[in-house]
Structure formats: C-alpha cells, structure tokens
Design a protein around this nucleic acid. Structure first.
Lengths: 197, 197
DNA sequence: ACCGCGATGTATCGCGGCGATACAACGCTC
DNA sequence: GAGCGTTGTATCGCCGCGATACATCGCGGT
C-alpha cells in the first residue's frame, strides 16, 4: 500500500481546485500555509515526478511552439489530478489515523478541512489535542526535573516552549468546541474565484 | 572560512561543559531543547565525524578491554573539545550576524546565552525581534489580501499563525527589556553539578 | 542461577527536503 | 533597446531523519 507523504497531499489538495504549473503550486503553498512550509524547487519537481510515476497526476504540455532553429520552446506544464489522484485524495481526506495529527502533517491536513467531513475533522482535532497534551506533560516534567541545576536561559527557553504548546492546546479546544456546536458538512465551492497569478 | 552549522554549534556548547558520549549528547539535546530539536543518530554521528575531521573535537577511547576470542570490546567514545574547538565556540558566541536569529539557529544560540556577553545577547534578541516583526507584516498582509475568496479553515490557520508570531514578539520584548535593565555578564559555573545519565 | 528486558552505546543506509544555481523567455519601464 | 523583475522548468550536493543492526550492561523476576 503506497503511502502518501505530506507534500504530495498538499499538492493533491491544491490541484483538486484547478490545474496548476509547478511554479504556481510553489507560490500558492507559500502563501496559503504562511511563510511556514515554504516549498523549494528541490522538493517540488522530484515530488511531481514521483506523483507522475504513481499516476496520481497528469502533465498537460501547452504553449509548445514550433521548434525554432536550434531554439527551445518556452515549455509550460500544467498538472492536473487523474482519477487515481482524486481517489487517493478522497481516501486521504477520509482517513483520521495517528499520522493525521503529526507535527509535520497536521497543518496541511487542517488546511484541507473544507473538503473533509465533520466527523473526521473532529477526530483529527481531538487526536492532535491529545498528542499535544502528552507533550505538555513531558515538557513540564522535564522543566521541573531540571529545576535549578541548570542555565537560566535554557530554563526560560523551556518555559516559553511550554507556553507555546499550551496556547496550541487552547486553540484546539476552541476549534473542537466550534466543531461540536456547528458541524456543518464539507462545503465545496469556497475557493477560487478568478484569481490568476 | 569554514562555517559552523547549528548542530555543530549545539554540540560545541554541550561539550564545553564536559566530555560526553554520543549517546549522552543526543539525550541531553533532547532534554534541554525540549521535545523540539530532537537529534537523530543519522545526524549525530556524521556530524561528530565532520567535527573530528575539522579538528574541533577529539575522541577519547576508553573502557577498551582486551579483545576476547573473536569478540569486540564494548567501545565507548568520550568526545571533548580541542583548543581549536574552544576557539571556534568563542568565535561563534561572540558573533551576532543575521544567521544568529534565523529560525533554525536562534533556539540553540539562545540556549548558549549563559556563555554570551550581554551586548551580543541584546543584538541577537533585537535582530530576532526585527525578523519576526517583518514576518508579522507579511502574514498580516497576506491574510488581508486573501479576505474572503478563500477557505475558512485556511484563513483560520493563517490567523493562528499570526497570533503565534505575535506571542513570540511579546516574549522577545520581555527578554529585551530584562536584558536592558539587568545586563549581567556571562555567568559561568551555572551548570553541571554531579548529574550523570 | 538464569532469563529477559530496557537502557546504554556506536554505526550505517536510503529517502527526501532544501538552498543554490542554471537556463530561458516573457513583459515592463526608461 | 537595454535592463530587470517575474514566470517557468530542472538539477546537484549536502545533510537531517527514521529505521535498523549490533553489542553490552545491569536490573528485577522466578
């Protein structure tokens, strides 16, 4: 069973809206997921190649002008989901295993909540919450154990890290609450009015 | 001019206190920097090898029992700083360039503030603050621009990311204030009472 | 007395992400 | 019409990571 990595998932979700060029994929991912999760070409193109090989996406070559004398042709490649790709995306969106709330995965998964049904959303949010709560205890314990045979700055770093995770848990609590009280279904058509860049 | 990567820097700082085995280095780094910045063997040993090659550290082979019949000898390798390593560490600790407040570097750099003089600490904290403030504007701008031709969940993710960065800035402000009002010098001898594990 | 199991300890392999870099053509302004 | 920023595709080397293998030590259980 071929596993879908985070990067592929993000691309899958992105291409579900509309076909895009590699360049556009990169730019959008940089914009939507914030300055976090910037995507380098060194990851993008190999990943697209992998996905092509797996048959998840297809490449529509366009703008292929006649080959000039010894010249090249300004090739632009629009990638779109194949049916296999749509199926894989649907599969992935319906899943709510432990991998859904890993540090690296969660953000991307969350950004696709618009295409995810309410029950799955809730499971993922709760899983993430539990994971962070565990981490919370670990850090708190470690912080208590290091009490004062240690550098003040190191301790402060720990304390701050702890606070960060606490905020994260609060955020999740808010989201969970919200999800419970208003479990609206997957809303399609939320995105992509005619914006091109 | 050989550049010192973050990992090497962390190890340099760690070995400045006392010689350690690879295993111990990993465990400590996992504990001190929190569950963040966990260090895998796949990074550690190659890095140690690089540092050995660069002459920054030396390996003290110990517990080398007589080779039993066809047996191996339970080798344990204690790494310690060479003079070149100490010099490099001092160099690095005195520097306060832009690389000091990068995302990947800052935490490690901060954890070594106990060995850094007050002026340098302040420069780094301010540099970091500026960097985050820039990011703050970028995200805020991006968030405003995506106003409501976009998925609600994606927007929420952005909003939360923004909040996280804001908290980070507040934290830095607090630290800067503190540093300005009480610029105590580098305090040595803060760490390492007889704790062994 | 022995067994097993978890902690200590060193080491490598393949995968994949990243920064840098190269190349090319487009469109805009001065 | 020269320059320059943007769009666009692609690769290379470095290195971090998870998994894995191996070996020994020390402890508690039966």
């Amino acid at each position: 069973m071929a596993k879908t990595d985070v990067l592929s998932l993000a691309i899958l979700g992105m291409l579900a809206e509309q076909p895009l060029h590699g360049y556009q994929i990169r730019k959008r991912l940089g914009g939507e997921l914030g300055p976090f999760r910037a995507l380098s070409y060194g990851s993008l193109y190999p990943c697209l190649k992998r996905m092509l090989g797996a048959g998840l996406i297809a490449a529509d070559e366009s703008e292929a002008d006649a080959v000039r004398a010894g010249g090249s042709k300004r090739s632009r490649i629009a990638y779109r989901l194949t049916e296999a790709g749509q199926a894989r995306l649907a599969d992935e969106l319906a899943s709510s295993g432990a991998s859904s709330w890993d540090d690296e995965t969660f953000d991307v998964r969350f950004s696709l909540f618009g295409k995810t049904d309410s029950a799955t959303r809730l499971r993922i949010l709760e899983g993430r919450r539990t994971r962070l709560a565990e981490r919370l205890e670990e850090v708190a314990e470690g912080l208590a154990r290091m009490r004062d045979r240690h550098d003040a700055y190191t301790a402060e770093l720990q304390r701050h890290g702890l606070e960060r995770v606490e905020r994260e848990v609060e955020w999740l609590d808010k989201l969970i609450e919200n999800e419970r009280s208003a479990p609206r279904g997957t809303d399609h058509h939320t995105a992509s009015a005619g914006d091109n860049n």
